[in-house]
Simulated scan of single mutants.
Amino acid sequence: MRVHRSGTSLAGAALAALALLLPLTLAGPAGAAEDPGARQVPARGSAYMGMGVIAHDGQGARPGGISVQAVQTEGVDVSSHQGNVAWSTLWNSGVKWAYVKATEGTYYKNTYFTQQYNGSYNVGMIRGSYHFATPDTTSGAAQADYFVNNGGGWSKDGRTLPGALDIEWNPYGATCYGKSQSGMVSWIRDFVNRYKYRTGRDPVIYTATSWWKQCTGNYGGFATANPLWIARYASTVGELPAGWGYYTMWQYTSSGPTVGDHNHFNGDLTRVKALANG
């Protein structure tokens, strides 16, 4: 170190040098990857539909020939983050269907589920429940059982939609939950088969195209049986995952005019009722 002869002490010079270097140290080298350990990991159970869409999928449209009906029916999805929901307000704003988070993994149940699930029904909505998948914790079959046992069932009453599997970015760790593409497909198949065995219905699959491509290799084998609920926060739905020629539901924003994420059902209210009836 060069000795300062203007009266500045060696200790003072060292501190000055450290002050100059500190911002570079904190910023890290240009282009360095984010340290996963530095990322704020949310509490288990706090995940909800679309949690990773903005962060990972961004905004804007993608090309693709998508079948869209002339009439779309407005719906919402909610979780414990919304607390007690003013369902009458939503109904009066034009929302006619809803999905409520019931479970996550095999370790979490929505503490507001009863108010949200029954409240939406009581104002006249057609409603269903969804499960946030964590394929790195337990098997697909185990999670399907947990879901059905804790609010994810179905009944042919004309007002209950089949359960939905929310399969998307992992908020707690590795994007694809540490699974290979074939391993992820197997996990999803395990879930949907078990859900159908328990309820008689094929569950809806909620996902985003970019995640589906990355984590399943754009597998197209579920399209013939499982309705697609696509997440895309843009003015158009864009490209769909392989196999699906149309979407059944589209989560188009996380910041709608009223509580919860907002969604379009691809058709009028009679189509929503048809899905409920199976």
Score class of each variant (00 low, 15 high):
221 G>T: 12
197 Y>P: 00
145 D>Q: 15
195 Y>F: 12
147 F>E: 09
181 Q>W: 04
235 S>V: 11
156 K>N: 15
216 T>H: 03
206 Y>D: 08
171 P>I: 04
207 T>L: 08
160 T>P: 02
171 P>Y: 04
211 W>C: 03
163 G>W: 04
185 V>K: 07
139 S>M: 10
205 I>R: 01
238 G>W: 11
191 F>K: 04
172 Y>C: 08
214 Q>C: 00
238 G>K: 10
229 W>R: 06
203 P>N: 10
198 R>D: 14
155 S>K: 14
217 G>P: 12
147 F>I: 09
210 S>E: 13
236 T>Q: 15
227 P>T: 03
169 W>Y: 15
231 A>D: 03
204 V>N: 00
212 W>S: 06
241 P>Q: 09
217 G>M: 11
238 G>R: 10
160 T>A: 03
149 N>Q: 15
153 G>W: 02
162 P>M: 04
227 P>S: 01
162 P>L: 03
163 G>R: 06
213 K>G: 12
206 Y>N: 05
152 G>F: 02
223 A>S: 14
147 F>T: 06
197 Y>M: 12
159 R>D: 05
183 G>S: 12
225 A>W: 13
134 T>Q: 14
219 Y>R: 07
234 A>G: 06
184 M>E: 09
234 A>Q: 04
210 S>Y: 01
194 R>G: 00
232 R>Y: 07
244 W>G: 01
196 K>V: 01
177 Y>S: 09
159 R>P: 00
184 M>G: 02
144 A>V: 12
185 V>H: 05
162 P>Y: 04
208 A>G: 15
225 A>I: 02
167 I>H: 02
218 N>G: 11
222 F>D: 08
151 G>Y: 03
165 L>Y: 01
180 S>V: 10
242 A>M: 08
198 R>S: 12
237 V>T: 09
162 P>I: 03
227 P>Q: 04
198 R>Q: 14
195 Y>Q: 06
181 Q>P: 06
215 C>E: 08
200 G>S: 03
229 W>N: 05
168 E>A: 11
147 F>K: 05
198 R>G: 04
183 G>P: 11
147 F>N: 06
237 V>P: 04
176 C>Y: 01
156 K>Y: 03
197 Y>Q: 15
194 R>L: 01
186 S>I: 02
172 Y>I: 07
166 D>G: 10
177 Y>T: 09
150 N>L: 02
242 A>V: 09
224 T>S: 15
194 R>T: 13
140 G>D: 04
235 S>M: 00
207 T>S: 13
